[in-house]
Design a protein around this nucleic acid. Sequence first.
DNA 1: CAGCATCCTCGGGGATACTG
DNA 2: CAGTATCCCCGAGGATGCTG
Lengths: 124, 124
Amino acid sequence: MSERFTYDIYNDCCPAREVLGRLADKWALLILDRLEQGPVRFNSLRRDIQGISQKMLTQSLRRLERDGLVHREVQPTVPVTVEYSLTRLGQTLTETVTVLTHWAEHNMNAIIAAQTAYDEAQQA
Amino acid sequence: MSERFTYDIYNDCCPAREVLGRLADKWALLILDRLEQGPVRFNSLRRDIQGISQKMLTQSLRRLERDGLVHREVQPTVPVTVEYSLTRLGQTLTETVTVLTHWAEHNMNAIIAAQTAYDEAQQA
DNA sequence: CAGCATCCTCGGGGATACTG
DNA sequence: CAGTATCCCCGAGGATGCTG
């Protein structure tokens, strides 16, 4: 019966595809990974995740919030500050995402080596 | 020292970002997930993964092959057939990816519910 | 069967300026 | 501070047709 789930994802109209599509967003992955370390404010996130534009950060956060993965809390300070944190659902996801990012960090050398080998083989 | 790794990924020029970028490709995720079930030929993959174009499949496969995640084996039949399978490195990755796709399938209902709630709250 | 090549479009996403 | 709004461009990616 777990097989039933395994195959669903290949279907074009499957909502799980939609969900996967969310994860297939490098910014989302990085944001989730960052949020796992604790609540962060908008500009802090912006600084931490180098290279992300303000537009993309806002967009990704909104999407993550809409998906129920991230919680957005407005603090009534002056000027206003907004704190982002993981929801319970988001936490269950980041556990997996973290494994993924760690995999990326630990295996990047192997990948770079593979790329070099591939490119050289292609040359000849 | 695991903290050192954790922070690397936020750096703009970090190769791990590149790697994550690879994973941030819904087709790649689906392909890896499919290949975990065993070697598959090109057109079979094309059929299994509904909605993918020939161009995208070729492109994703080439990238995965270049990254050393997927093995491409040409069979000298007539006409030629090509079989794709996971490399050892690819296998270590798919273990994680599978967890991710399963998460997507098992939590899609919760996500859809969150979206509906969000949209209704937005309406008012 | 397993691609490569070409054309074309459509929207992702950067840059910039403004606001509560 | 944490956004929204606008303009604009480039490249991801679909459609189509051809080949070893």
